[in-house]
Design a protein around this nucleic acid. Structure first.
Lengths: 243, 243
DNA sequence: CGCCCCATTGAGTGGTTTCAATCGCAGTGG
DNA sequence: CCACTGCGATTGAAACCACTCAATGGGGCG
């Protein structure tokens, strides 16, 4: 079941059997990509959207000097560019972080779902809105938190999201990011990321070494990050997207 | 025609007559609110969504000390909380900036549209994705630009959006924001906003006084802001949401 | 007139950046 | 087996941007 992780952990938004089957039937090609591959460029027209099965993908924008700002990180179960279906082109680049496996959905197939399946359509719409919600939280993070809070928040979010799809437990998970990447996601320099990580480590909050993350004190880390997971619309948090 | 401004300026995404009529029929109450009114609180369940007819509305989140981060500013023609339809609750507060007039759409009525009108559904979906696109641009702005670039970018965006709905011309428009508000949108303090505005004024780029904005040199301002309006999916910019 | 909100300006502080150098480690080729 | 190479992590020092604290000024309104 390729689509098993889609909206996993999002409570009542679970797909029913019928919709699940329809989504599964809409799967086109399954592809693999190596680490650090560009998958889509800003502005290029799209004819298919991509569900991430394994690995990590990021979306980012370049500034005039070529420095990147990562605007989203995706984990397995995420539809990476479902917004490309209504929009037809993207306003950012998409690239793999580590090696990945993805499933492609042609826009034709999605079109058919919109025609025939209002409930599934609303769930797909919902999934793009979770992305928007995470965007807002990132705006908050960049606008209101200092470097330590930003980094802490980033890891709190990723931990929560990976837990939902069974890829994190007890605050441990794998994440193939460099410190420079982290900086590009948190709006600080790679050098400063290093110093921040040292502080977090010395305070017994978390460690991030050789792509392995370990959150030692999630409570204090969340406090530092002002992290409140409601924006992820996870299970048990109210009736998000209830029928 | 209450919905006349919805998706105005978004080129091929214009609604056809039939969909326009259906949307118009879905309008419920039309309400007015005074300046600085709280319209919705984070977490509260929603049963209707709001189309902004006149005035300005912002969405924001509070940090632990009560300082706000504005995550979106809405102009007439924007669906302020259409994402509340699939999501059923919000992850942020919503408040008026100046006095406003809005039209409410019950979620029941929207439900009917999703059932019956796949094309209109996709356009509503599209409109929530433009919001997400603007969120991403704000992430870029906060992550990569300095204070001057951020403020410049904010005004470039608002100018472009207000032009689309006929509320700005030749770089002039009204905007009932205080300098402190601006700071909350740009991730800087109100005091520093003041200094930045002075610099922009002295360089002949723009003025912002008594709620009146005047962009004197849009080209240089856009350069400073690294502003590229493609993310707004306006008319003439490719085939966004083409049928 | 007095009050309050908002804009404005100054001085000092501090967080982050920049520039630079060093170190560790894995891969490669001799 | 070991030098060589390159990338990422780490640390230091100096510069700078934006913040904080504080005070003044201006304008609308009761």
């Amino acid at each position: 079941m390729l689509t098993a992780l889609f909206l996993r952990g999002r409570g009542r938004s679970a797909l029913d059997e019928d919709d699940r089957r329809a989504l599964e039937e809409a799967v086109g090609e399954v592809r693999t990509y190596a680490s650090r591959q560009l998958l889509a460029r800003a502005g290029a027209p799209l004819t298919a959207s991509t569900l991430l099965l394994d690995g990590f993908i990021c979306r980012y924008m370049d500034d005039r000097e070529g420095y990147r700002q990562i605007v989203a990180v995706h984990v397995p179960g995420d539809f990476v560019d479902l917004h490309g279906f209504p929009m037809k082109r993207l306003d950012h680049d998409v690239a793999t972080i580590g090696p990945v496996r993805v499933a492609e959905f042609s826009h034709e197939a999605l079109e058919k779902i919109v025609e025939d399946r209002p409930r599934l359509t609303r769930l797909m719409w919902f999934s793009t809105l979770i992305d928007a919600s995470m965007h807002r939280e990132w705006i908050f993070r960049l606008g209101r938190l200092g470097a330590e809070g930003r980094v802490a928040h980033f890891f709190c979010e990723l931990n929560a999201r990976l837990e939902m799809v069974g890829l994190a437990a007890n605050g441990r998970f794998e994440l193939p990011l460099t410190q420079a990447d982290l900086g590009e996601a948190c709006g600080i320099t790679g050098v400063h990321v290093n110093r921040v990580l040292r502080v977090l480590r010395e305070q017994g909050l978390m460690t991030f070494r050789q792509n392995a993350v370990e959150l030692h004190d999630r409570k204090r880390l969340a406090a530092l990050a002002e992290f409140e997971p409601a924006y992820l619309y996870g299970t048990g948090q109210d009736d998000a997207a209830a029928a």
